[in-house]
Design a protein around this nucleic acid. Structure first.
Lengths: 134, 134
DNA sequence: GCTACGTTAACGCTGCGTGATAGTTG
DNA sequence: GCAACTATCACGCAGCGTTAACGTAG
């Protein structure tokens, strides 16, 4: 629960490569809460949770910049010192992500239709040439 | 019908950028059937059709190499000189694309579920902080 | 001869994969 | 002191976007 885990365990747990995790750190998304005496990255549960957020955002087409932005909003909302007007502004930034996600959902549905059509085309192309040679 | 069109018209028609169309040519996917005296690319309907196939494959996650491969299969199937045993081999290559497309459809469905969950999370995160300050 | 359109480099970018080389942990 | 893990460069790659500098079409 209050465990510190190394990058390898984290990678296996969240399904990201070591390289990817280090890359996100390099880009300012997730910093391990501490390091071992020898320099090994040590992650808390909260750190892992951040990586999971990222992993969810990735297939939605969000860029690293977008992810950093959303994580920052989350951090601010979780900060008690954040004032009400500040929270209102953060809500608007969340709204942008909701819109983008909604748009992405529509795009995915389009792609699904497209994929089915393509599969059909592949079948027809196959049949045309196997049956009566048209 | 037997019209030759320039790259700009093609780009608008299929929804790809000039750069992208040239890139696909560079990669050996679609060569314009001819050039103007001064060197302008001139495309036939068949050329445009090839580009449309590519445009359909792109969101399915196929690489340029994959696309070249599928177009080659198509070309072979459309060639009357292709023998029956050759056609059988081509069918097997088509099967690979069908499998990949089926897998992609499943992946897209997963991504859709993921996207909906993410949208819900965004809503909950918003509500938690707007209503009773938890 | 003007304007819109096109040509070929060639460099830039994202999101990592893939070594190389060296140090750490237990 | 050995195996397994990790560290930091640093280069490579796909799939284009984006100038730059210049030629063509009509």
């Amino acid at each position: 629960v209050g465990e510190l885990v190394q990058i390898g365990d984290v990678a296996e747990a969240v399904g990201l490569s070591l390289r990817t995790i280090r890359y996100y750190e390099e880009m300012g998304l997730v910093r391990p809460s501490s390091r071992s005496k020898g320099g090994f990255r040590l992650y808390t549960d909260a750190d892992v949770a951040r990586l999971l957020v990222i992993k969810r955002m990735k297939p939605l087409g969000f860029s690293v910049d977008d992810m950093r932005d959303l994580l920052a909003v989350r951090d601010q909302l979780d900060t008690p010192a954040t004032t009400a007007p500040e929270r209102a502004a953060l809500q608007e930034r969340l709204q942008v992500f909701r819109s983008a996600t909604a748009a992405r959902i529509l795009a995915l549905q389009d792609e699904l239709v497209n994929a089915h059509r393509f599969a059909d085309e592949l079948l027809h192309a196959a049949e045309e040439h196997t049956a009566a040679g048209g």
